[in-house]
């Protein structure tokens, strides 16, 4: 860690998913007390709402462009925030959901700021993951729950456990390897179906999920057979939830060992 050349600081906070409902008092205070606020939210109305909380809210949306590599966009986000930190400003980065869940720039910006000696902090927010548990009635502790970014799940060999829930993020970008597209089509999703078919039957019911970002919306919870996923209507906002396809398998050897321990006098 080096000695900072100014009194700047960075807080990356989550604004939650649903407008008005999820922002924490501490996140709001970080926003209100900042000198400058950067916004990476996924809904234009949420951005308008955020602009009511602070006179200097700068949208990070213009950093995105069709055909531009996503890493370039994310690096641009980090640079925009750190430029103001280095200029001695108290900076707040506002990200939708939780700022540290499936989000590269906040982690990176905090790491770089700390390396340069600036105070930097992440403040959790309510993630789409939290909404998913509530809306779909899933307790991740009941049978276990695996989370993957969809493309990463496809292009690397992972250990799937069909007795647990499987949650696939960014499913609308399934198989996107170029780094500069924001959606893929049915042919790519068919490859995802083929990967899943190694562990799940073709008629296994999967759930396309989208939490409400505006408080008058209802969540989207569409149940379809796995085989129909290629033709489903998907945007960048949906998450795919794959319910368990198998019962938990007992490990009788471990169970016997534990039972034997129970019989040993304390």
């Amino acid at each position: 860690m080096s000695t900072p050349s100014s009194t700047g600081s960075l807080a990356c906070v989550g604004i939650g998913i649903t407008l008005g409902s999820h922002i924490t008092p501490l996140a709001r205070s970080h926003i209100e007390k900042a000198d400058v606020v950067f916004a990476a939210v996924s809904d234009g109305v949420v951005e308008l709402w955020l602009k009511e909380m602070h006179p200097d809210v700068r949208s990070l949306q213009p950093l995105y462009a069709e055909g531009k590599h996503r890493m370039e966009t994310y690096r641009g986000m980090v640079d925009a925030m750190l430029t103001e930190v280095r200029a001695g400003k108290r900076v707040c980065g506002v990200f939708y959901g939780h700022p540290g869940i499936f989000a590269w720039a906040p982690h990176r910006a905090i790491k770089v700021a700390r390396e340069e000696g600036y105070p930097a902090h992440m403040e959790p927010g309510i993630s789409s993951e939290d909404c998913l548990y509530a809306d779909l009635g899933i307790d991740p502790g009941a049978a276990g729950c695996l989370h993957f970014e969809t493309t990463q799940f496809m292009v690397y060999r992972r250990n799937v456990d069909p007795s647990a829930w499987l949650i696939l993020w960014q499913v609308g970008l399934a198989g996107e390897q170029t780094g500069h597209r924001f959606a893929t089509g049915p042919a790519y999703r068919q490859v995802l179906v083929d990967v899943l078919a190694r562990d799940y039957p073709a008629d296994h019911e999967v759930i396309i999920y989208c939490a409400a970002t505006l408080p008058f919306q209802s969540p989207r919870m569409e149940r379809i057979p796995l085989s129909q996923l290629p033709l489903a209507d998907l945007t960048a906002a949906e998450t795919l939830a794959v319910p368990p396809a198998r019962k938990l398998e007992a490990d009788s050897e471990i169970q016997a060992r534990l039972t034997a321990l129970d019989l040993v006098p304390a």
């Binding site: 996924s42 951005e47 989000a103 780094g179 409400a212 919306q217 960048a236």
Partner: peptide
Amino acid sequence: AHSTSADELYALLGLRPMFHTQENPG
């Protein structure tokens, strides 16, 4: 209308869909 979509509201407010991705799975 209590719909799952907010497209009508976005159109009335002149808002365009926003980019969502924040992660590179590389």
